[in-house]
Amino acid sequence: MSFGTPEMWVPRTLPPDAQAASRLREWMEGGGKGGLDIIGLDLSDADLSGGDFSESWFTDAKLINTKLIGADLYRSDAEGADFTSADLTRASLVRVNFDDSFLREAKLDEANLVKASLCDVDASGASFRGTRFMGASLLDVNLRGADLSGAVLQENSFKVTLDNNTKLRGLSGTLFGPVQLIDLGVTRELGGADLEQWLRARGGDICVLSSRGRERP
C-alpha cells in the first residue's frame, strides 16, 4: 500500500501541527505523486506507518515521537531532521540522507539502511536491533548507549563513537574503522586488530578491514 493509492492508505494519526497536516492532506489529495515536501515542518506525534514516502524531502523537519513503522523513505532527504524517539521499525531507508540528523532514542529495529548516509548524526540510545547497514556510511555518528544487537554491516565506513553501554552482541559483517571509544570519561581511538578484538569480546562477529579493503590478520 502506498500514497499512490490514497484510498488504500491513510495516516493513522495526522500531525497535530496544522501546517504539516495541511501539507500532508494536499499531497494525498494529489494522489501522492512525487515526493512529499515537508521541509522544516513539524510531523511530531503523527502515525504515518506503512506510508510510501519515496524521494521525499524531510530536510530540517521535526519527527519527534513520529511512527513510521514499515514506511518507505527510499532516496529521501532527511538532512538535519529530528527523529528523536521516532519509531522506524522495519522501515525501508535505502539511500536516505540522514546527515546532521538526530536519531536519539529512535527505534530502527530491522530497518533497511543499505547505502544510507549518516554523517554527524546523534544516534545515542537508539535501537538498531537486526538493522541492515550494508554499504552505508557512518561518519562521526554518536552510538553511545545504542543497541546494535544482530545488526549487519558490509564494508561500512564506521567512524563512530561507542561506549561500554553500546550493545554489540550478534553484530556481524565487515567495517572500516577507527572508532572513538569513551570509557570512564576517557576517549581513545580504536582500530584494526584492537577494534576487532574489542568488538568480538562483546559478542560481535566482525572483521575490521584495512583502508585497502583487506581483512587484517
Rank of each mutant, 00 (worst) to 15 (best):
K115R: 12
V114K: 03
F128M: 05
A106C: 10
V114D: 02
R129V: 13
S101A: 14
E105D: 15
A111Y: 01
L108T: 06
G125D: 14
D120V: 10
S124T: 06
A116D: 00
G125P: 13
F128R: 01
C119W: 04
R95I: 00
K115D: 00
K115M: 02
D99P: 00
E105C: 12
D109C: 07
L103K: 10
D99H: 08
N97Q: 14
F98V: 03
D120L: 12
D99I: 00
K115G: 02
S127V: 10
N112T: 11
A116G: 02
R95Y: 03
D120H: 13
S117C: 09
A126T: 05
K107E: 11
D109V: 05
D122C: 11
T131V: 10
E110G: 06
V94D: 03
D109S: 12
K115N: 03
K115T: 01
R95T: 03
K115V: 00
V96Y: 00
S124D: 09
D99R: 11
A126H: 10
D109K: 07
S117E: 13
F128I: 06
R104Y: 04
F98W: 10
T131I: 06
R104V: 08
V96E: 02
V121W: 02
V96R: 00
E110H: 14
L118R: 07
V94C: 01
A126M: 11
F128S: 04
E105W: 15
C119P: 00
A106G: 10
K115P: 00
S127A: 11
F102Y: 10
G130T: 15
R129K: 13
L108K: 01
F98P: 01
C119L: 04
A106M: 09
R104W: 04
R95S: 05
L113G: 00
D99L: 01
S127F: 06
S117N: 13
R104T: 07
L103V: 02
N97R: 15
A123L: 08
K115H: 05
